[in-house]
Design a protein around this nucleic acid. Structure first.
Lengths: 254, 254
DNA sequence: CGATTCATTGACCGGGATCAAGAACCGTGG
DNA sequence: CCACGGTTCTTGATCCCGGTCAATGAATCG
């Protein structure tokens, strides 16, 4: 059974059996369970290892001088937290779990070796980086030019798509145990306003929330409210390869 | 005389003479002048070449369905526009000039070759990518959690620092021929409000604007208003290497 | 079953948007 | 050298989305 990193990378590229085997071996070696609301690595720290989320939910965030927190990205299974951290002296932001998560560590020198000597794997990581940048840019658009309702709709739709893409879910229901304060920190809104927008989306029968589980009731409707265009995720293989698993996983959403 | 890409990369790393020579050769080969307000590459297009800004000013942007524009980043001399574009099928955003600019093209296969076979150069590009991501994340914080005045102050301070770092300027005055509409598109504000905030910053004697030239009158004051922390730029060499040129160029600013 | 965290609601406020009009600053051509 | 049409900048009046403050439920958990 392939690990989530491989599933994620297969959105973009096809691995050789050797590369796939290597990645499976590698991620099996150093795994660590983290509880909910634990930091994996903190702003200002250095790490010689890189971290990859295998299960659970984590986020990139930064605490500002005035005590407010900005969440810059959610990390789901298959996401590398900091693929190039080993070349940096220190992190410019923190990464912490939201729910209990299983995190795999890979030594930086191993990572460097892969990037320089395994073209297939290097290619996959470049692609992954490009998707991450796309997600960051889309968040900038979000905060700059979309109103609160679209912004939240966008975030939900993106989470649905990303979770489907790595096979964490296969329908319209997903585990997303964030508080409304978390969502506020991720969207640049206040918790009070997030609450009101969520109520609105529920009244419109676009989404339903039962505890930690969210259901997208009307994907097309939610997508329209979010003005969601999937091109920034670069899911080329999912779109073009008629026989790819990734394509099946995203049917009807992109 | 080293080209701006090398100067940019030397913020982070030291090149061997061979690498430096190679990069100088490479960027000298395909250069093209673009007029002001011209697209270098458009959303939806593919390019087999990558582009690097040698002089002038460009930006990454996206036009939304409703016609509004979001500028996600300004690109200054030394910035690669799209270092990994050759592996993507199509751009998820556009890149256009603000002022007349000189742009160098490097074939994708050459780029790939460098990334796989020239560890020193690959390292520099990884670093560059990490800085770009840091800049994007900082913009998210900006729009999410800083008010209009800080946001604009931050942008100005960042431009000052980045231009100094690559040696485009060596004092507190720099060419930054953007309209207030451009600034509004970059900060997620309206032109009217940008105007008011700029007036305020001028009244506070933090900045002065004469046509296309901006002067930071009070760097420490501006930095404070912006709540600027330079760590996200990862200018390690500039900070730590007492003898580096990059360090001299940033004296008093970080 | 108390205690703490989280969701919800209402009243009110304010930063920044919107709308509209005029002023200053162009580059261009006569 | 000046007239003029188009940007760009500036200013004022008004509005509203989302923030702030505060209190009450609901849920979760030792």
């Amino acid at each position: 059974m392939d690990n989530p990193l491989i599933k994620r990378m297969e959105q973009f590229t096809a691995f050789s059996d050797a590369d796939r085997h290597l990645l499976n071996e590698l991620l099996a070696q150093n795994q660590k369970h983290h509880g909910a609301r634990e930091d994996i690595i903190r702003e200002g720290e250095h790490s010689d290892d890189i971290h990859i989320v295998l299960s659970g939910l984590a986020c990139r965030y930064k605490i500002l001088e005035n005590g407010t927190r900005q969440i810059m990205a959610f990390l789901i299974p298959g996401d590398p937290c900091d693929a190039e951290i080993f070349i940096l002296k220190e992190m410019d932001h923190s990464i912490g779990t939201v729910t209990p998560s299983l995190i795999s560590s890979v030594p930086g020198h191993t990572m460097k070796d892969l990037l320089l000597n395994r073209p297939g794997i290097a290619l996959a990581f470049w692609w992954s980086t490009l998707q991450d940048e796309g997600i960051l840019r889309e968040r900038i658009i979000d905060e700059g030019r979309r109103d609160a309702r679209s912004r939240i709709a966008f975030l939900i739709y993106e989470m649905l798509l990303r979770m489907r893409a790595v096979g964490v879910i296969d329908d319209l229901r997903f585990e997303f145990p964030v508080t409304q304060v978390d969502l506020a920190d991720a969207t640049g809104l206040t918790p009070v306003h997030v609450n009101r927008m969520l109520q609105q989306l529920r009244e419109e029968k676009l989404i339903a929330i039962e505890g930690r589980y969210w259901t997208v009731l009307d994907p097309a409707g939610l997508r329209k409210v979010a003005r969601f265009e999937a091109n920034y995720l670069h899911l080329d293989r999912a779109k073009d390869q008629p026989d790819s698993e990734a394509r099946d996983r995203l049917k009807g959403l992109i």
